Simulated assay, not measured.
Amino acid sequence: MGISKQYLKTKPVCKVTFTVPAKDAQKVSVIGDFNNWDPSKNELKKLKTGAFKGTLELPKENSFEFKYLIDGTHSNDPEADAYRWNEFAGAENAVLEL
């Protein structure tokens, strides 16, 4: 898994690219507080390599909790900036610092 960040000089946003190696998966989404945890909003595209990839423009100087939803199973990114306990979910969420 991987996260790359590209800060734009002309806009107050950061382009965040999420890459998830999941050859056997049918569907991968990135869900978080930036999209109300809705898996239909940010589905990643499957590449020929078998990885899933997608880019989001998110506002700079913010912190977001997120997870991947891989064929219905939640997963954290090992390259996240931090992890935060979420009482509602009863689990840790990955954190993205921009």
Rank of each mutant, 00 (worst) to 15 (best):
43 E>M: 11
91 A>Y: 08
73 T>P: 05
64 F>A: 03
95 V>I: 03
78 P>C: 03
96 L>H: 04
86 N>I: 01
19 T>Q: 09
20 V>K: 15
81 D>M: 00
88 F>D: 11
12 P>K: 08
28 V>R: 02
97 E>S: 05
23 K>H: 13
29 S>L: 04
78 P>N: 04
96 L>F: 02
48 K>Y: 08
32 G>I: 04
16 V>K: 00
9 K>E: 12
32 G>V: 01
84 R>N: 12
19 T>G: 05
4 S>W: 05
34 F>Q: 01
80 A>I: 00
74 H>V: 02
7 Y>S: 15
26 Q>P: 06
18 F>M: 03
45 K>V: 05
1 M>E: 15
25 A>F: 10
14 C>F: 04
28 V>D: 09
1 M>C: 14
67 K>F: 05
70 I>V: 15
40 S>D: 10
70 I>Y: 03
14 C>L: 06
14 C>S: 15
2 G>F: 15
31 I>F: 11
18 F>D: 01
20 V>C: 15
81 D>V: 01
39 P>L: 07
85 W>S: 10
76 N>P: 06
81 D>Q: 00
26 Q>F: 10
62 N>C: 09
31 I>K: 04
98 L>P: 01
72 G>N: 08
23 K>G: 12
33 D>M: 10
76 N>H: 02
50 G>S: 08
31 I>M: 12
31 I>A: 12
59 P>G: 03
73 T>V: 07
18 F>C: 00
60 K>Q: 14
32 G>A: 04
41 K>N: 02
21 P>E: 12
67 K>V: 06
60 K>F: 06
52 F>M: 04
11 K>H: 14
79 E>I: 03
86 N>Q: 08
79 E>R: 04
4 S>T: 14
69 L>W: 01
75 S>D: 03
87 E>L: 04
4 S>Q: 14
40 S>E: 15
81 D>T: 00
98 L>A: 00
41 K>H: 07
23 K>Q: 13
25 A>Q: 10
14 C>Q: 13
86 N>M: 05
21 P>Y: 13
73 T>W: 03
61 E>F: 10
84 R>G: 02
61 E>Y: 09
69 L>M: 08
75 S>A: 13
62 N>D: 06
47 L>A: 11
19 T>A: 09
22 A>K: 11
36 N>G: 04
15 K>C: 12
33 D>R: 09
18 F>V: 00
33 D>S: 08
96 L>Y: 02
12 P>F: 15
96 L>D: 01
61 E>N: 12
49 T>S: 13
16 V>G: 03
72 G>W: 02
15 K>G: 14
32 G>N: 02
